[in-house]
């Protein structure tokens, strides 16, 4: 691991100021000399593996603003402070009652210990678990731009079928982000030019020709909060996660679903898919296929077909297409049948 200077800024503006001073604005946050650390569960892992090489770590855990550690609910918005831990958010009774999808996506992620450590901002920014990205002896366009992609012809069972490019097929593995993108969440950011807001859907970038550019954040941008709108319909929401073992595993396929129903007729469906795409993945085509329909098995299957119409399988991950479809169908029907 590269030696690093460790600092504990006292407030958000100090964190932004130190990051601005030491980071080259052209650098990606993940490549910058100075990087933030919160729960450490993703960054420390990648530093040990030699994938992340910050020269300076800014520990966000001493930031004094109390709102960074609070969940506030009011006016149709749940506001999660960036430093709220996954476990705390998953156990929050009000969040679970208002929007089970949020709680379930957190509860089914990682383990009890990791959820105690990991922050919500760190969680959404977690980097892919692509085995070739993790092991620095392999070519990887995300880690070393232009070096090639070992996964393309390699053992790509975990890899994505949606949102892929010729340069990278790495899956975005987070669960909470699927809930956030389905629910039209917003990210609050403080950076060199002050505070701003970004649609959660704009936070992550498709790999395209630049898989090393993972987000639209600057290296001195601190996420301070995530806001999620809610209404009566969000009580009928659900996260279904399918994996190799029943717990403590990343999704092979998952579906985040929220249904606004009028009887059995769908007024509006919100759908995101995990485990199958390179970024948090909103399935708009599936949502449109459901609009105004009465939800039954057949309608759900049509929507699932629409969700995967553009899927690009590789040698070992073609199974994710039927698995992803079945996951979505089951999630839709389970959500329909929820007692709310």
């Amino acid at each position: 691991m590269r030696p690093f200077v460790y600092e504990r800024p006292a407030d958000v503006s100090a964190a932004v100021a130190v990051a601005s001073r030491f980071a080259d604005q052209q650098d990606q946050p993940t490549k910058a000399d100075v990087q933030f650390i919160a729960g450490a569960t993703n960054l420390a892992d990648y530093m040990k593996l030699g994938v992340a090489k910050p020269k300076r770590l800014l520990d966000l855990n001493a930031l004094r603003e109390p709102t960074l550690r609070q969940i506030k609910i009011g006016d149709g918005i749940i506001r999660f402070g960036a430093l709220v831990r996954m476990g705390e958010a998953a156990d929050n009774d009000d969040v679970r009652r208002i929007c089970p999808l949020l709680s379930e996506s957190l509860k089914l992620a990682a383990s009890g210990q990791i959820r105690n450590m990991a922050s919500l901002a760190g969680n959404v920014l977690q980097r892919t678990r692509c085995e070739y990205f993790r092991e620095t002896s392999w070519p990887c366009n995300k880690r070393d731009p232009g070096s090639g992609c070992a996964a393309m012809e390699g053992f790509n069972r975990q890899h994505a079928v949606l949102g892929t490019s010729d340069g990278c097929i790495a899956t975005y593995h987070g669960d909470f982000a699927q809930a956030l993108i389905a629910l039209d969440a917003t990210v609050e950011i403080e950076g060199k030019r002050g505070a701003r807001r970004m649609e959660f859907a704009k936070l992550h970038r498709l790999p395209g020709d630049t898989p090393d550019i993972e987000t639209n954040l600057a290296p001195d941008d601190v996420i301070v909060a995530i806001e999620v709108p809610f209404a009566a319909w969000s009580r009928r929401s659900h996260y279904l996660k399918i994996r190799d073992r029943e717990s403590y595993a990343f999704a092979l396929a998952s579906a985040a679903v929220a249904l606004d129903l009028d009887g059995n007729m769908i007024r509006h469906a919100r759908i995101a898919l995990g485990g199958v795409a390179t970024v948090p993945w909103r399935a708009k085509a599936a949502e449109e296929a459901l609009q105004g329909k009465t939800l039954d098995q057949e309608v759900a299957e049509t929507a699932a077909d629409a969700a995967f119409a553009e899927a690009q399988p590789r040698r070992y991950n073609a199974f994710k297409i039927p698995l992803g479809k079945r996951t979505l169908v089951r999630a839709l029907l389970e959500t329909r049948d929820m007692k709310v």
């Binding site: 460790y6 504990r8 650390i37 450490a40 569960t41 420390a44 892992d45 040990k48 593996l49 770590l57 520990d59 855990n61 383990s111 009890g112 210990q113 990791i114 105690n116 450590m117």
Partner: peptide
């Protein structure tokens, strides 16, 4: 040593965490 097994679990301020994924300096 990478957060995948739980063998390193300890309590920090009463909460269980993985000591392999935490830098000691963060536990001042």
């Amino acid at each position: 040593d990478h957060g995948q097994c739980g063998a390193c679990t300890v309590l920090v301020d009463g909460r269980r965490v993985l000591s392999c994924l935490s830098f000691a300096v963060m536990n001042e």
